[in-house]
């Protein structure tokens, strides 16, 4: 019997996130601790928390947990771990140590699947240069897996998600579309070549070389559950400045083959929800077909980095990214001054 991990779950990957508006509401009720050692916390939906130990040492701390996005358990383990580790990289940090967090249906006794999931995760932690040091499990109807990760960062070199500057160029390091592809896997219409491409990107660590991190990167985040537009909106709206972005649709990298899946109805609830929430921020200066537009809202699992960088250094950054295996990295747009309500201009 073929065991399909995705038949054991409802929503997949980062599309299973709680509605961002509801989340904001719950989180606003939690008393936030103000402490000058806490360099990143609740306040601007950062990728990870950062705690300053001393002038030269900061701790990056994050937790992420997802439901299956592919059927193969080892691959799912790799994807979930890559996705969790990404939050450390997105702060400019290096992972030190990770703990597993896993939910699995005990009743079904398919522990060989769990073995493979954990093995996939362990291999990715090792590849990222971290140590796997333990974990916690819960007997649950639907499988879920992820990591809590602790990393190190120089407090002076933390790269925040809300500090872009006017004139910056925006780079996206991985193509979009993995949310649609995992829906198509669940709908059993995904073709192998498309799935292979999605798996390749979802298992690629968002680890950048020191040389890249030392370029003049003003702001950095990873594109995950809220889709490209959702994460762009956090970058500019939470900056506290009058900023907008101008994005060129033809430059946005997208995995080949997804438009057909969209036309066959493989759009997740998460993508529709993101569109509903964030489309009020978007000004369309060109005619966009539904399938081109919805990709911009598609929740990404283990998505690429969104880099806001000094235009003087953008060429060097692209060259280095290509050398480091982010072969589809593209300049997708520019940070502009804007007071408009529709601050994300699509051209």
């Amino acid at each position: 019997m073929i065991e399909k991990l995705m038949q054991m779950t409802r929503a997949s990957g980062c599309a299973a996130k709680i509605n961002p508006k509801d989340l904001e509401n719950f989180l606003s009720k939690i008393k936030q601790t103000k402490d000058k050692r806490l360099l990143a916390g609740f306040e601007h939906n950062e990728d990870a928390a950062v705690y300053k130990l001393d002038e030269n040492t900061g701790i990056v701390f994050t937790l992420d947990l997802i439901t299956p996005v592919v059927n193969d358990p080892y691959t799912f383990g790799q994807i979930a771990a890559t996705n969790s580790l990404s939050d450390v990289f997105a702060m400019g940090g290096k992972p030190l140590m990770a703990l597993n967090i896993v939910c699995f249906p005990e009743e079904e006794r398919k522990y060989h699947l769990l073995d493979m999931i954990l093995q996939g995760g362990a291999d990715k932690v090792a590849e990222a240069g971290g140590l796997l040091a333990g974990g916690h499990s819960v007997n649950d109807k639907e499988p879920k897996y992820g990591l809590a990760v602790v990393g190190l960062v120089d407090p002076k070199k933390v790269i925040y998600n809300n500090t872009p500057e006017v004139g910056d160029f925006l780079i996206l390091t991985k193509p979009l579309g993995v949310g649609i592809i995992s829906t198509a896997i669940k709908g059993e219409i995904a073709e192998k070549r498309v799935v292979d491409k999605a798996v390749f990107w979802m298992t690629k660590l968002n680890k950048l070389s020191q040389e890249l991190l030392e370029l003049n990167i003003h702001s950095l985040t990873d594109v995950t559950g809220f889709g490209l537009v959702g994460h762009l909106s956090e970058m500019i709206l939470l900056s506290g400045k009058e900023l907008g972005v101008e994005v060129s649709i033809k430059d946005i990298p997208v995995i080949d083959g997804i438009y057909n899946y969209i036309n066959m109805g493989m759009v997740s609830k998460g993508a529709m929800r993101n569109q509903k929430i964030y489309s009020c921020l978007v000004e369309k200066n060109i005619n966009l077909s539904f399938e081109k537009e919805i990709v911009l809202f598609d929740p990404q699992t283990s998505g690429g980095l969104l880099i806001s960088i000094d235009p003087q250094q953008v060429e060097k950054a692209i060259k280095l990214l290509h050398q480091e295996g982010f072969a589809e990295s593209k300049i997708i747009g520019e940070v502009i001054k804007s007071k408009s309500k529709e601050r994300i201009k699509i051209c």
Partner: peptide
């Protein structure tokens, strides 16, 4: 749950 409705109708 998504995408089973569209798969079933298809």
């Amino acid at each position: 749950s998504c995408p089973l409705p569209v798969v079933t109708v298809r």
